[in-house]
Nucleic acid binder design. Structure first.
Lengths: 344, 344
DNA sequence: ATGTTCAATGACTACGTAAGCATTGAACCC
DNA sequence: GGGTTCAATGCTTACGTAGTCATTGAACAT
């Protein structure tokens, strides 16, 4: 009358072989099975082998959910990232790649509209993540402050306005744009236009400050023009505006590569030659900026370094709320392309 | 002698307010607190308000980990995706965006080398995910079979070789490439070269078949050339090879847009004019393919539709192992750019 | 031989929630 | 008015693991 052991084991295989099952089959306690998988050095080689064999035979896989509940650690890092944009996609990819080498996974929380961030953060809170990356330059001060209160490690990625509120990692936006500005001045540009993406983004503000301050110090004015989005299309459209401008500018500095690509193509469509009629610079150093079609002069962010530093901060787990939040600033590198000239 | 309630509550706020804490503070049972958050209609409005107020005051946030352990559902979908490539980044973004609207999150498992897939899948198994997307055309048959045995919903995304083994969603790779081939024939191309990315990718094989079959039916030969990777650089490099080829081709069909971009720029660098000297087609319909600099003739995948269908399959939860796995094929659309001509 | 030490293992419980079942009490029916 | 019904709520347990503590027994020292 007893159910066939074969049927039973197949049912077991079908869903949820637990450490208890393995323990029973191997003739040891559940605790020992657990040890084999979490701290094998505490188990004698003989038992270890026996348990591992049994586990493999039954198809046992440790349940991370249960482990997380018990240990209060998930081994998962969350990332709050805008749903669009080449730059964020590349950052995300880099995070995922680097975390994988540290046996951490990346849980994605993307949002399409800045207004969605509140909802996303509420959702984030439910997961007891080991850390959280805030990768958006439009997250508000109040939301950052709220995040600081959380007991989980947080790091703001390339969000200058977050400095001092939560730990942050950024490229040196201001200095980078300042150096691009110097480059333009050195090559003789005197009428310079700045094209921003979204003026509320803190990166946009900081980069513009880098440009306008440096240009101002050299007596060059720098008008700010907002594309309205960090997209190719926005850049393409704003190019028309640039062409019609009087006095016509010598150079256009763009807040981001993706927008700069659009400006580049939009200018060409309008018959403006880069760099003959107009110099053009970008920012970010996206892989496409090096493509022959653009070969854009831009500030290259060492994304891998930025990401590595961000991960360090998250995993350091320095739960020392007393000290000021760390703020890492990584310098960028100018890559000189053919959208500017090197000899004045 | 009792500890100050203030101190106690602050400690509570610091880490881990549970439904039990809320229950005690609100003077109800833990079960009622749980109901307020999972099935509020089962609780009287008065109690509901009381509990919600108390929860807000204490800063209670339901613990998804515990919920998952109990309910056996995580609300998380896993995605196994190559770490590199514009195409996969865009697919990933689309998944994340669509899942967010369904209150699901995306857990990323990226891998850099095809050989890493085994390790990744082992890691995946530990999470009791509600579903898994296999988004890579290089996952092997044995691994797919292994996944089929899993009790969790799985869907292969754009991996033709997975058809019949696990549920899958693909663009119509073969028909799409066939139509591009017809387009080239119609415009008079007679010496056609096919540039693949990685020949072991099942999309690569299927697309090549679409091209070679159609061309063959019209008496046109189609040599296969492997770029070696699905990257811009690989395409750029292979362009040199194309240029030196004898007899020199009229047209080049490329397996993917990203490689096509490289071929495009590589050809231009070598002094070959597209489309005057040579016609060029891509595949995927990446957003960059529409950029003015390329304006590539390509097959546009309706990524949003593909992703939507994949999510449907995952969430349908048709645990009917008897029937054959579904296989959805979504047609693509040719976008005619300036890398080919429309009048023969 | 007896005590000491320590590696190996087992028993037990907590992690935070949800679902099943039991209980209460008010509204309702004849 | 006593029985029936049902909404509202409480009690209890299970989810699968890991850490704490207790127990065992072998190796070793005295």
């Amino acid at each position: 009358m007893s159910s066939k052991s074969v049927a039973d084991s197949s049912r077991r295989t079908r869903r949820g072989v637990t450490s208890v099952d393995v323990a029973a089959a191997a003739g040891v306690s559940q605790a020992t099975v657990g040890r084999v998988f979490s701290s094998p050095e505490k188990v004698s080689p003989a038992t270890r082998d026996k348990v591992q064999d049994t586990a493999a035979r039954l198809g046992y896989v440790p349940n991370v959910i249960a482990r997380s509940l018990k240990s209060q650690r998930t081994n998962i890092i969350g990332a709050v990232v805008p749903a669009f944009g080449e730059y964020w996609q590349s950052v995300l990819t880099e995070f995922s790649r680097q975390l994988a080498t540290k046996d951490r996974q990346l849980l994605l929380f993307s949002f399409a509209e800045p207004g969605d961030v509140d909802g996303v953060l509420a959702s984030v809170a439910q997961y007891r993540l080991d850390g959280l990356v805030l990768a958006s330059a439009t997250i508000g001060q109040d939301q950052l402050i709220q995040m600081r209160e959380s007991d989980r490690p947080v790091v703001a990625f390339n969000h200058p306005a977050a400095t001092g509120i939560v730990p942050s990692v950024s490229v040196d936006n201001e200095a980078g744009m300042a150096r691009l500005a110097m480059h333009l001045i050195n090559t003789g540009a005197r009428e310079i236009l700045y094209v921003g993406g979204v003026s509320s983004a803190s990166t946009d503000q900081t980069r513009y400050r880098g440009a306008s301050r440096t240009l101002g110090e050299h007596g060059v004015a720098c008008t700010y023009l907002e594309a309205g989005a960090f997209t190719y299309e926005a850049g393409y459209k704003v190019a028309q505006n640039i062409v019609e401008r009087q006095p016509s500018p010598d150079a256009v500095m763009v807040s981001s590569d993706e927008v700069a690509f659009g400006v580049h193509d939009g200018l060409r469509a309008a018959g403006v030659q880069v760099p003959d009629d107009l110099l053009l610079t970008g920012f970010d150093g996206l892989s496409q900026s090096a493509w022959a079609g653009f070969d854009l002069t831009t500030l290259v962010q060492a994304t891998d370094v930025l990401v590595a530093r961000a991960i360090e901060i998250l995993l350091a787990d320095d739960r020392s709320p007393a000290s000021d939040p760390v703020s890492v600033v990584v310098p960028g590198t100018i890559r000189f392309g053919k959208t500017t000239v090197t000899t004045p």
